[in-house]
């Protein structure tokens, strides 16, 4: 069975009748890169947040299995500890908490509660070494480790720090929600190279994007077009190029029942 299985997933905005996801089916395994492309308002970000456990959505039908476990039964923290990661489009600031301390808490949360319930906090020298290596990979100035997380960071810096957290938490499946937005061309290259280094046999990725741009650097194995809460077409990397050439409107007109 694939590591992440999404079946007929429907979701509303919490406590409302507004349906955003109208039946998503998708399978993804470690080592694979999937891209989800779609116009604004198609439900791309909703999908990423429903998978991560955002409190602002209600799942009304369908199921999501992560390594065979029902993901929808878990809180966001448990999903994270199970190996799911979401790089936020709009990360929150945590004033007064340094990058280094925040990531260490997160790393330790992942090392907590093994089968025997014991904690295994990472030793500080080992942690510092890993953090510095990951910062180097993403070409982040080391002095940034003692800044408050995302507090006063530029849009591009926030994205880099999302990928830094991904590098430190080593998820099995990472969802990257509009990671390319707000990045200038150099930053996009650096972040993409970082992503390419991290994705491998032990990690798969779901890249959510409006534009083809990031896919020039991170080549997807599969591309899915999401429109109005449904995946309307799936294909290989070439689909992204086709989309770039013809636009969403034409893809939409070409939608047929064999779309998925």
């Amino acid at each position: 069975m694939p590591d992440l299985v999404i079946r007929n997933l429907h979701a509303n905005i919490a406590d409302s009748d507004t349906e955003i996801l109208k039946g998503i089916d998708l399978e993804l395994s470690k080592g694979e890169i999937h891209a989800i492309m779609g116009p604004n308002g198609s439900g791309k970000s909703t999908l990423s947040h429903v998978l991560m456990g955002h409190p602002g959505y209600d799942v009304t039908a369908g199921e999501v299995l992560f390594e065979g476990q029902n993901l929808l039964d878990l809180g966001a923290d448990e999903r994270s500890r199970a190996g799911l990661f979401l790089s936020f489009q709009y990360p929150f600031a945590v004033p007064g908490v340094t990058v280094a301390n925040f990531i260490r808490m997160a790393v330790n949360a992942h090392r907590k509660g093994g089968p025997d319930g014991t904690d295994d906090p990472i030793r500080i020298p080992a942690y510092r070494k890993q953090l510095m290596e990951a910062m180097e990979l993403l070409e982040i100035d080391k002095s940034m480790a003692s800044r408050s997380l995302n507090d006063g960071f530029s849009g591009g810096e926030k994205k880099r720090f999302e990928i830094l957290q991904m590098a430190m938490l080593k998820p099995k499946i990472a969802i990257l929600d509009e990671t390319d937005s707000g990045l200038d061309i150099d930053a996009l290259r650096i972040v993409s190279e970082g992503i390419n280094r991290l994705i491998g046999p032990d990690m798969g990725a779901l890249i959510i994007t409006h534009y083809q741009r990031i896919l020039d650097y991170v080549t997807p194995d599969h591309v899915h077009i999401l429109m109005d809460g449904r995946i309307v077409r799936s294909g290989g990397a070439e689909l992204a190029h086709e989309l770039e050439a013809s636009g969403y409107a034409n893809i939409s007109q070409g939608v047929s029942s064999d779309g998925v």
Binding site: D77, S80, R81, F92, P95, G96, M105, L169
Partner: peptide, 29 residues
Amino acid sequence: GAEHIYYLMSRGLSEAEASALIVAGFVEP
């Protein structure tokens, strides 16, 4: 906000850890 806590929980912190961390950061000065 619930979303703020959710962001921290998405990194593996429990709800209580997340809200305590936000408050600790708030009073850090």
